[in-house]
Design a protein around this nucleic acid. Structure first.
Lengths: 202, 202
DNA sequence: TCCTAACTTCACAATCTTGTGAAACCACAG
DNA sequence: CTGTGGTTTCACAAGATTGTGAAGTTAGGA
């Protein structure tokens, strides 16, 4: 029942994006948000984040978000606070206005991934106490030590991997290949080429 | 190989083992479980999983779990069903008894990580629809395409990484170094000397 | 076949979690 | 200063979750 969700278009000063925004874009936003939610992010935060990601300029103010997602200013506020803490978005003041704009950070994913790495070290830490509590000479202790080894491995590898990414991204960017770019090498680039058309709808 | 107060083995009859297991082991179990919970796993499942991981034989039956964790059979049942679906544990029948034992799979983490990789492909799929909806020639489309590129990169790298792990694990095992083993190399091997000393006790 | 230990399902009460309206705040234009 | 657009805080209602006791099933053993 999407009635006129569509706002009082009397908005002064052109907005980059057409107000009643496209059906399929909205679908994408909701679908991606739901996947982020599945992965553990709060629903509102996920929706806000996805909306920003899909916005033309990469930044929207509270009103625009509320309008696109049909949520209250309070909800936007909460989501934004969360995302800011995570460092996924930043806030900026529109000069000459009291409005604030929320912008997706360009390095969002990189940052996020790095953070996940920190979680790894916490886990490793915990597992060390486990090995200690159980004793290295017990089966349980060894089992946990193996897990520990795996996580340490992951940690080291991930770090190296991210370095490779920054290099790669730089290269892709200067070649202007990021938009639809192709690749080849590095672990067998496998582009899952398939029509999204059949997309498993959520 | 020392044996901890564990294994009431072969004790099908009523008497629940009064062996409240070691304080520090319990602490480890609860701490690790809570971290798993933070990462998204159901609390009961996390506790059951951690308990199994910390058990001498790597397998416990319902009664033992209920006793160690102070939870009802119903809770055990639910947690076990969940973990089984995830493929993190397996069930086996104790011969000559009606009891079932739940065992942590040895390759749990490897499996889990692989699964995460599958999620990546789903995300990539979603983002393709996003690029399509927005158009490759829009700023938003390009932004999402960059994210897409990152995830494809991650996907490929992760796969290669896991291959490396299986090789490494084999080597570690045959060298018997997995229990407390030391290492250094392989992808910028960096042994995180010490956890963030501050150990945020949650 | 019947008995019964052991696991599973069910309905529910206790908790958490969410998103909202409304009031409180804040900072800036006038 | 003061009025006002814009954001944040608060208390709460509507929903989810969760874990439990108790009833229901299933299958080994006599």
């Amino acid at each position: 029942m999407r009635t006129v969700t569509d706002e009082p278009t009397g908005e002064p000063a052109g907005k980059p994006t057409p107000s009643p925004y496209p059906e399929d874009v909205s679908r994408f936003v909701e679908r991606f948000a739901s996947e982020l939610t599945d992965a553990g992010m709060t629903r509102m935060s996920a929706r806000v984040f996805a909306a920003l990601l899909a916005s033309e300029s990469g930044a929207l103010n509270s009103a625009e978000l509320g309008e696109r997602l049909h949520i209250s200013p309070a909800a936007v506020s909460g989501a934004v606070r969360y995302l800011t803490q995570l460092g996924l978005i930043g806030r900026e003041r529109e000069p000459g206005s009291r409005r604030e704009r929320y912008r997706v950070h360009s390095d969002q994913w990189y940052e996020t991934y790095s953070r996940r790495n920190q979680v790894l070290t916490r886990w490793v830490d915990t597992m060390r106490t486990g090995v200690e509590a159980l004793g290295e000479d017990t089966a349980a202790g060894q089992r946990i030590d193996e897990t520990l080894a795996f996580f340490e491995f992951l940690h080291a590898e991930s770090a190296a991997m991210m370095d490779r990414w920054t290099v790669r991204r730089a290269r892709l960017r200067e070649q202007g290949r990021l938009a639809g770019g192709e690749d080849g090498e590095d672990g067998g680039g496998e582009r899952n080429g398939t029509g999204p058309g059949d997309g498993p709808e959520r």
